[in-house]
Amino acid sequence: MAKSALLKSSIAKKYWMALTGLFLCLFLVGHLIGNLQLLYGGENPSLRFNEYALFMTTNPAIKILSYLTYFSILFHAVDGIVLAYQNQKARPVKYAKNRPETNTVWASRNMAVLGTLILVFIVTHMVNFWSRMHFDKNMPLQTVEINAGGMKQLFYLTTDGGYLPKAQVDQGMVVIKDRKYFYDAQANVKIKEGYMDLYKITVEFFKHPRYGLIASILYVIAMAVLGFHLYHGFGSAFQSLGINNPRYNMLIKNFGIAFSIVVPLLFAIIPLYIHFFLKA
């Protein structure tokens, strides 16, 4: 009894929706702090961001968190769609005249549509950035131009804080393996590791002469959709978990509304900044 009660019943599905949803809210905060480095990179924004990207793809604690995030998104989406399907079936004959706007807010009635749009966004977003960081064979490595002996020369930045002349790779003395490791061509030993240039990918994506503007606009729209999802979802998750106490209700509600506005807004500023203001 108890086991199936914690997995299959209507209420249990809501616990899982709420737990995965709130975990995804935490994920959003972490992701946002990372993205904001695109704006606040200090002296060398690209290096700062690429160091962050390296950390995010290699740190073992982050690995665990990222698997939890993949799982949460999948579970939340599948559970949400199952719930929406069951709810659709629970009223086979619709009303000829219905005025739901008199007793509910719009966001609360459209969680499944909003969620599905978010899912579409997440998939495209992962194709554009995540999959390149993880799988792209031609992922660029970060280079800098340095004045060496009166001549401008390109160098790869390496994770030990050093530089590797690009000319050595061009001339075949050093080869790149596994997308980011520099190998001595003759001895076939690994000498250094480069930074995958996610910064460049991101900036080029939003500054693309043809598609940069539309990409930025779609990104902003996706964040608005996320905002509406969270406008209802954040407070709703607490109710699902049985947390409803007059002493804290206003706090939860107001925090949820602030969260649903501030987080998507900060996300949305980034592509707009890159597209319109960042000097290439």
Binding site: A5, S10, I11, K89, N103, T104, S108, S240
Partner: peptide, 22 residues
Amino acid sequence: MVKKMDEEGFGNCTNTGACEVE
């Protein structure tokens, strides 16, 4: 009671709050 409620074919709560208002 929840088991029976589910068996009877009622939908799942999404906390819209329409019930409380009406």
